[in-house]
Design a protein around this nucleic acid. Structure first.
Length: 430
DNA sequence: TCTGGGGTCCTAGGACCC
DNA sequence: TCTGGGGTCCTAGGACCC
């Protein structure tokens, strides 16, 4: 049996945990540049504000003064997520952390009542220790556990935050009441096609012939169907499995036309990708850079392009990855065009002990590794951007703009500026 | 005025092989 | 008249998730 714990309205709940005066009010958390709504309190949902709603359209649903708007603070959410997951890890085994706010795990007992009691206790503990409300469910498959925890969240009669789906007759009843587009793995396009065929509920979907679903849609869709019928066939990657690609991208605060300013952003993203590779003890073989204009502006020409390069030797060094990112950037940057978004992706990722090196690579690779270890040590101690390996200006033009959150401490900024004056060579010698 | 930032998997089709 | 039957690898694009 698989269990699932899912944090309710996670980003809003994090903000409330830090600031209880937000309780009882309609609260939304906004994406970068305060663009879209990415988390809503129940009160905000009740006003009809949809997920992904552009912030400037909130007035279509209610008087904007009724809603507290907050700029996202991802560092805070990541921290609270780790705390919630570690509490779950003290009670449950085989955690499969699926996203920042939810994790699967295996239930320890065969006895349903014992599992229920254990989970209810855990839900209480998480709220008491972190302030984050969660819902949970358990069932024979991941997909059914998702449905169960969804019911725990929505059904007001459930007061301990736990719902389970085990008995076949109960599963059947619930599937009949579950709209097809509420099923995990059935998105907008698929549910449209299915509704066109007269399939409106999860139960109707589960009753379709397996081969037909496989031929008409795909093996993934057929797996979803088998999961609904109680067959365990979807693997969720445990967190220990390294990423296959790592991406960093941002929509800029404004349209940018200046080559140096866009390049500055690309260098920052390359640096962040490399740092994450090192954190995962991985290296990448390929670097892609993409640039994009503003698709919402009809008054200026739109330009979008991407360039992927393969490195001679896989690497996680900021200097190496930035070097390739710069070549890719120069390949696709066009003077006179307007840019609103850029990104860097590293892919073909493998563990760093797996790389094949020739004699000369070996020397260079060793030097790079030592250098990056020194930089990471300093940055972990004194702050993320104390030492920078690529040209980046703090607070460059490209940074997303936020209006609804406190700025980071000024003291730290001044200190970082001083530290930056140390040259890379000095550091390496140290 | 104003629309995010990540990820994964699968399929179709082309190039190439024997 | 009549034109095989497998493979593999790669890429682009689409679908899904949070």
């Amino acid at each position: 049996m698989y269990g699932l714990i899912d944090c309710n309205n996670f980003f809003v709940s994090c903000e409330r945990a830090m600031n209880p005066s937000l309780n009882g009010r309609a609260v939304v958390v906004l994406s970068g540049n305060d663009g879209c709504v990415i988390s809503r309190s129940n009160e905000a949902k009740a006003l009809g504000i949809p997920m992904g709603c552009p912030a400037f359209q909130i007035c279509n649903y209610t008087n904007p003064s009724n809603v507290v708007k907050l700029s996202a603070r991802h560092a805070l959410y990541g921290d609270l997520s780790r705390r919630v997951m570690s509490i779950i890890g003290t009670v449950m085994e085989n955690l499969e952390i699926y996203s920042i706010d939810e994790t699967f795990f295996t239930m320890p007992y065969n006895d349903v009542e014992k599992n229920h009691a254990l989970l209810a206790e855990l839900v209480k503990k998480i709220y008491k220790w972190t302030g984050i409300p969660v819902s949970s469910g358990f069932a024979p498959t991941h997909t059914l556990a998702k449905i169960a925890s969804h019911i725990a969240k929505k059904d007001k009669r459930i007061i301990d935050g736990v719902y389970w789906l085990i008995r076949p007759d109960a599963i059947d009843t619930i599937l009949r009441r579950t709209p097809i587009d509420d099923v995990w793995g059935i998105g907008r396009k698929l549910s449209q096609s299915l509704c066109g065929m007269g399939v409106y509920s999860a139960a109707q979907f589960a009753a379709l012939p397996s081969q037909f679903v496989k031929n008409r849609f795909s093996v993934t869709t057929e797996r979803v169907m088998r999961e609904l019928k109680g067959e365990d066939c979807i693997n969720v990657n445990p967190i220990t499995i390294a990423h296959k690609s790592i991406m960093n991208s941002r929509t800029f605060g404004n349209i940018i036309t200046d080559r140096v300013a866009v390049c500055d952003a690309v260098m920052s993203f390359a640096d962040m990708c490399a740092k994450r590779l090192r954190d995962e003890r991985s290296v990448a073989s390929s670097v892609s850079v993409y640039l994009r204009g503003d698709p919402h502006r009809n008054d200026i020409p739109y330009y979008s392009n991407v360039c992927q390069l393969y490195m001679l030797t896989p690497s996680s060094s900021t200097m190496v990855i930035a070097k390739y990112a710069l070549i890719a950037f120069n390949n696709i940057f066009r003077e006179g065009m307007s840019y609103r978004k850029a990104g860097v992706m590293v892919s073909d990722i493998m563990p760093d002990e797996n790389i094949q090196l020739d004699l000369f690579d070996k020397i260079e690779h060793g030097r790079q590794k030592k250098l990056m270890e020194a930089v990471d040590t300093i940055n972990n101690k004194y702050g993320r951007k104390c030492v920078q390996m690529v040209p980046q200006t703090l607070g460059g033009d490209w940074h997303p703009q936020t209006r609804h959150t406190a700025k980071p401490s000024q003291n730290l900024r001044i200190y970082s500026d001083q530290i930056q004056s140390l040259s890379v060579i000095q550091l390496f010698q140290q």
